[in-house]
Design a protein around this nucleic acid. Structure first.
Lengths: 171, 171
DNA sequence: TGTTAGTGTTTCGAAGTCGAAATATTCGAA
DNA sequence: TTCGAATATTTCGACTTCGAAACACTAACA
């Protein structure tokens, strides 16, 4: 075991904040941002395994999730590429595969022949729902150290941050 | 604008939470997790552009950042692959490129000839520091709606979550 | 209505990533 | 000390992703 166990997430978090501050970052900013990324990284590891069991890649999951959470907004390949941080050309192939497996359906936009609309099939919905139920287990474990009240406070603070995100636009 | 502007981060967040709850997730959990991912996604978009200006890919940045924040722990390619969520074989090529550009240096571990130790060169450190200073601008904007006190509270709550992460291990 | 600029999707070649197998070394037990 | 299992890295072929260019259509304006 290499004479040392890999350092814990906690230790890594502390070292990282210290290094960012030493390199010129503000402490209160770096604590929040680094914590958010540490959490995301760990969750991503778990998702990847769970998704592999369902036969999905991380990228395919983003597509499934966005289609399932888009409300009533019609969704085009370009929009999917934007929200999943991927090139439009990659989305073409990804949708090919997913359509081949019967998870999504492409249909021409009746109002604009340049466009294609993408939506989930019944089978896509089922896969989405079973993934959410599985993921909720890990996510609940992740937040187990917080009381119900604290979760509410945490969510409220994050929501304040999110409410400002649309105005920043790459200033 | 396609008869509709792309929905805002905020609207997307609300729709997503609603959909996850409808699919069987717990609300207090989904609010926190979805908010964390919304924030990460937006930050990733900005980082990608900033890093492109510095001639770095997202993956190369992870390597640079981990080496810079690893404290005094010696770092091997396998460890880098783990913490950046990438296959060990990919790390080989990534390090080849980065070493070619003079950002990192590989040297045999004197204590174990199976191993290779990776560290930043002077040039690697400089690039790290300039990236941190640039990133800090966007990150500060992101948290601009929170008071100093609120940032502290947010960081404290996230740190509680992080402190539990090491014990979950893919239960 | 004809022209031009713009938008949305796909195709294409180059580059990055993956998992499995190959190679080299260490560690523990007989 | 020697054997076998475990660990660390790299090589290999298949697949995914990228950005640029091609293509098809729409929209604005004279």
């Amino acid at each position: 075991m290499s004479a040392r166990r890999a350092s814990s997430v906690q230790q890594q978090y502390r070292d990282a904040v210290a290094a960012y501050v030493a390199a010129g970052g503000e402490e209160s900013v770096q604590r929040v941002i680094t914590a958010v990324f540490s959490l995301t990284r760990k969750l991503d590891q778990w998702y990847r395994r769970q998704l592999a069991d369902l036969g999905l890649t991380h990228g395919e999951w983003s597509v499934l999730a966005h289609l399932a959470t888009a409300g009533d907004e019609p969704v085009t390949p370009t929009r999917l590429a934007d929200v999943t941080n991927v090139a439009a050309s990659s989305m073409t192939h990804r949708l090919d595969r997913m359509a081949g497996r019967g998870l999504v359906r492409r249909s021409p936009d009746p109002a604009n022949r340049t466009r294609v609309l993408v939506e989930l099939t019944e089978q896509g919905w089922e896969l989405f729902e079973s993934a959410v139920r599985e993921a909720n287990v890990v996510e609940s474990d992740t937040l187990a150290r917080l009381t119900s009240k604290e979760r509410g406070e945490l969510a409220a603070l994050l929501e304040v941050v999110i409410s400002g995100l649309d105005e920043i636009e790459t200033a």
